[in-house]
Protein backbone atom coordinates (compact mmCIF):
# COMPACT_ATOMS: atom_id res chain seq x y z
CA UNK A 1 0.00 0.00 0.00
CA UNK A 2 1.25 3.41 -0.97
CA UNK A 3 0.49 6.55 1.03
CA UNK A 4 0.71 9.72 -1.08
CA UNK A 5 1.12 12.99 0.82
CA UNK A 6 0.71 16.66 0.04
CA UNK A 7 0.18 19.86 2.01
CA UNK A 8 -2.54 22.32 1.04
CA UNK A 9 -4.04 25.22 2.95
CA UNK A 10 -2.68 24.26 6.38
CA UNK A 11 -3.74 20.65 5.91
CA UNK A 12 -1.66 17.53 5.44
CA UNK A 13 -3.49 15.32 2.97
CA UNK A 14 -2.67 11.64 2.82
CA UNK A 15 -4.11 9.28 0.21
CA UNK A 16 -3.82 5.54 0.83
CA UNK A 17 -4.92 3.14 -1.87
CA UNK A 18 -6.07 -0.43 -2.43
CA UNK A 19 -7.50 -2.65 0.27
CA UNK A 20 -6.94 -2.16 3.99
CA UNK A 21 -7.23 -5.55 5.59
CA UNK A 22 -5.39 -7.84 8.01
CA UNK A 23 -2.28 -7.84 5.83
CA UNK A 24 -2.00 -4.15 5.01
CA UNK A 25 -3.38 -2.61 8.21
CA UNK A 26 -0.13 -2.64 10.26
CA UNK A 27 1.76 -0.70 7.57
CA UNK A 28 -1.23 1.65 7.16
CA UNK A 29 -1.26 2.37 10.89
CA UNK A 30 2.48 2.91 11.10
CA UNK A 31 2.40 5.38 8.22
CA UNK A 32 -0.64 7.21 9.59
CA UNK A 33 1.04 7.68 12.96
CA UNK A 34 4.06 9.15 11.19
CA UNK A 35 1.99 11.63 9.19
CA UNK A 36 0.02 12.47 12.32
CA UNK A 37 3.29 13.47 13.99
CA UNK A 38 4.19 15.55 10.93
CA UNK A 39 0.80 17.25 11.08
CA UNK A 40 1.24 17.90 14.78
CA UNK A 41 4.75 19.30 14.30
CA UNK A 42 3.55 21.60 11.54
CA UNK A 43 0.32 22.62 13.30
CA UNK A 44 -1.61 21.20 10.35
CA UNK A 45 -4.92 19.42 10.20
CA UNK A 46 -4.92 15.90 8.75
CA UNK A 47 -7.18 14.83 5.88
CA UNK A 48 -7.32 11.17 4.87
CA UNK A 49 -8.31 11.03 1.22
CA UNK A 50 -10.04 7.68 0.77
CA UNK A 51 -10.94 7.95 -2.91
CA UNK A 52 -8.48 5.20 -3.89
CA UNK A 53 -9.43 2.87 -1.06
CA UNK A 54 -11.43 0.07 -2.58
CA UNK A 55 -12.37 -1.52 0.71
CA UNK A 56 -11.43 -1.32 4.37
CA UNK A 57 -12.26 -4.10 6.83
CA UNK A 58 -12.86 -3.46 10.51
CA UNK A 59 -9.14 -3.92 11.02
CA UNK A 60 -8.76 -0.69 9.04
CA UNK A 61 -11.53 0.96 11.04
CA UNK A 62 -9.60 0.08 14.19
CA UNK A 63 -6.59 1.87 12.76
CA UNK A 64 -8.69 4.95 12.05
CA UNK A 65 -10.13 4.79 15.56
CA UNK A 66 -6.70 4.64 17.18
CA UNK A 67 -5.23 7.36 14.96
CA UNK A 68 -8.28 9.53 15.55
CA UNK A 69 -7.88 9.10 19.31
CA UNK A 70 -4.19 10.01 19.09
CA UNK A 71 -5.10 13.02 16.93
CA UNK A 72 -7.55 14.25 19.54
CA UNK A 73 -4.91 13.94 22.24
CA UNK A 74 -2.53 15.95 20.07
CA UNK A 75 -5.27 18.48 19.19
CA UNK A 76 -4.88 17.67 15.49
CA UNK A 77 -8.09 18.08 13.52
CA UNK A 78 -8.65 14.89 11.50
CA UNK A 79 -11.08 14.46 8.58
CA UNK A 80 -11.96 11.70 6.15
CA UNK A 81 -12.82 12.51 2.54
CA UNK A 82 -13.75 10.88 -0.74
CA UNK A 83 -15.04 7.52 0.47
CA UNK A 84 -16.73 5.28 -2.09
CA UNK A 85 -20.32 4.19 -1.59
CA UNK A 86 -19.31 0.91 0.07
CA UNK A 87 -17.11 2.64 2.63
CA UNK A 88 -19.81 5.25 3.31
CA UNK A 89 -22.22 2.43 4.14
CA UNK A 90 -19.70 0.70 6.40
CA UNK A 91 -19.09 3.97 8.24
CA UNK A 92 -22.83 4.39 8.73
CA UNK A 93 -23.45 0.80 9.87
CA UNK A 94 -20.54 0.90 12.33
CA UNK A 95 -21.67 4.39 13.48
CA UNK A 96 -18.22 5.79 12.69
CA UNK A 97 -20.01 8.60 10.86
CA UNK A 98 -21.10 9.84 14.31
CA UNK A 99 -17.58 10.62 15.46
CA UNK A 100 -15.45 11.09 12.35
CA UNK A 101 -15.70 14.22 10.23
CA UNK A 102 -16.69 12.86 6.82
CA UNK A 103 -16.64 14.88 3.58
CA UNK A 104 -17.45 14.00 -0.01
CA UNK A 105 -14.20 15.41 -1.36
CA UNK A 106 -10.86 16.78 -0.18
CA UNK A 107 -11.92 20.24 -1.33
CA UNK A 108 -15.02 19.99 0.86
CA UNK A 109 -12.85 18.86 3.78
CA UNK A 110 -10.53 21.84 3.27
CA UNK A 111 -13.51 24.17 3.25
CA UNK A 112 -15.25 22.45 6.16
Amino acid sequence: MELKQETRERALIVAPNGVIDHDSAPAFEEQLHKVLKSADDGALSLIIDMKDIEYMSTVGLRVLMRVSKRAREASVDIKVAGMNACMCEIFKISRFDKVMQVFDTVDAALAG
Partner: peptide, 16 residues
Amino acid sequence: SLLDAWTIKQDWGHSS
Protein backbone atom coordinates in the same frame (compact mmCIF):
# COMPACT_ATOMS: atom_id res chain seq x y z
CA SER B 1 -22.75 -0.76 17.63
CA LEU B 2 -19.11 -1.18 16.68
CA LEU B 3 -18.41 2.42 17.65
CA ASP B 4 -19.96 2.09 21.11
CA ALA B 5 -18.20 -1.23 21.75
CA TRP B 6 -14.85 0.36 20.98
CA THR B 7 -15.40 3.68 22.72
CA ILE B 8 -17.87 4.63 25.46
CA LYS B 9 -18.84 1.01 26.20
CA GLN B 10 -15.37 -0.44 25.99
CA ASP B 11 -14.81 -3.05 28.73
CA TRP B 12 -18.55 -3.41 29.33
CA GLY B 13 -18.18 -6.98 28.11
CA HIS B 14 -20.26 -7.01 24.95
CA SER B 15 -19.76 -7.00 21.24
CA SER B 16 -21.30 -5.67 18.03
